[in-house]
Computed example of a mutant assay.
Amino acid sequence: MQCPQCHSTQTAKNGQRRGRQCYKCKQCGRQFLESYRPWRYSNEVKQLCIKMYLNGMGLRGIERVTKIHHTTVMHWIREAGHRLDDAPEAEEIPEVTDLDELQTFVGSKRNKLWIWTAVNHKQAGILAWVIGDRSRETFKRLWSIVKCWQCFFYVTDGWKVYPMFIDQGDQIVSKTYMTWVEGENTRLRHYLARLHRQSLCYSKSVDMLKCSLRLLLHYLKDRTVPLPA
């Protein structure tokens, strides 16, 4: 029997694992099996893990329940998220849009980021979003999408960036009328463990955060998740 690592033929039997013969290389110490079975998780298992993730469970929590390594689940989430648009296509163009920011962080609490969201004032569902700091440059990316809707009014809080882009007569500054957008931001925190307050779960990359948001927004609208490639 040849060692798959150093290709030495000086190997010896080393017990059995689930009925299959194990070997150990005398040269490099590598332990290996005579043959390996091809392994592939079913589509049902992949979708179940992603749905668990989109219902508030962290990656390591899913691992504890399903015995599937958290990096495998993370890989499925990335693959599925990269295949989606940022948000599902809007059924109608809003006449009034709510705008708000949700604070989070990536890597450490010192690396703060904001998720800027745009919501139809009369319907549930986030229509557009961007991730970045709380500066005008970040909102400018969201505004390039929102301004195309040509809404009558834009409901915001008192953050200084908004008047730089929204005409005074078109902006309504009122926390009272921001129920829709604040409710949608609360749903993001509720469904994604990485956005929970005072949680051990947190984002380690912006790319993973983006994939998570894409998957969640499509899941909340259709109650289905795409299969990883």
Rank of each mutant, 00 (worst) to 15 (best):
Q2N: 00
C6D: 00
S8A: 01
Q16N: 13
G19H: 01
C22N: 13
C25V: 00
C28I: 07
S35E: 13
E44G: 12
V45R: 06
V45M: 01
Q47W: 00
Y53C: 08
L54C: 09
N55M: 06
L59F: 08
I62G: 13
E63C: 14
R64G: 02
T66A: 11
K67T: 15
H69V: 14
T71E: 14
T71K: 09
V73G: 02
V73P: 02
M74H: 11
I77R: 03
A80P: 14
L84A: 13
D86H: 02
A87M: 10
P88T: 02
E89T: 15
A90K: 08
A90G: 11
I93S: 06
P94G: 12
P94Y: 00
L99Q: 10
E101K: 05
E101C: 12
V106G: 08
V106E: 02
R110T: 15
R110K: 14
K122H: 01
G132C: 01
E137Q: 05
F139Y: 11
F139L: 04
K140E: 00
L142A: 01
W143K: 05
S144F: 03
C148I: 10
Q150R: 12
C151Q: 09
F153G: 03
G158R: 00
K160H: 11
M164N: 08
F165V: 02
F165A: 02
I166C: 09
I166W: 00
I166K: 07
D167E: 09
D170S: 13
K175P: 06
T179Q: 07
E182D: 04
E184Y: 04
H190V: 08
Y191I: 02
L192H: 00
H196W: 15
R197A: 13
L200G: 04
L200E: 13
C201S: 14
Y202P: 09
S205D: 03
V206T: 15
D207S: 13
K210P: 01
S212Y: 03
P228R: 11
